[in-house]
């Protein structure tokens, strides 16, 4: 699976929303992700993409859209 597919499937699980057509939607201001879901997302991405996102690395401005998450995951791999 590509990073984009992985990220989208993780997000779909957490938000119950298919975000494939909304790659630039802000996940935090739209209320799709709260802190708890964010932690779950970080854990899933760490596991599925074999990366290590430190929790304090989580600067919301850099992770706030599906597109940015994909870019971040790719960067960390």
């Amino acid at each position: 699976m590509s990073n984009e597919q992985t990220v989208l499937s993780v997000l779909q699980e957490l938000t119950a929303t298919d975000l494939s057509g909304q790659m630039t939607t802000n996940l935090f201001t739209s209320g799709l992700l709260d802190s708890m879901a964010t932690v779950q997302m970080v854990m899933e991405l760490n596991e599925q993409c074999s990366i290590n996102i430190p929790i304090s690395e989580f600067d919301r401005n850099q992770w706030d859209t599906p597109e940015k998450i994909v870019a971040k995951v790719t960067e960390l791999q």
């Binding site: 932690v39 970080v42 929790i55 304090s56």
Partner: peptide
């Protein structure tokens, strides 16, 4: 508190 207590705590408990 969100970043250094809540999120770290949930991360720890879930991990």
């Amino acid at each position: 508190f969100r970043d250094f207590v809540f999120m770290r705590f949930t991360f720890f408990v879930m991990k």
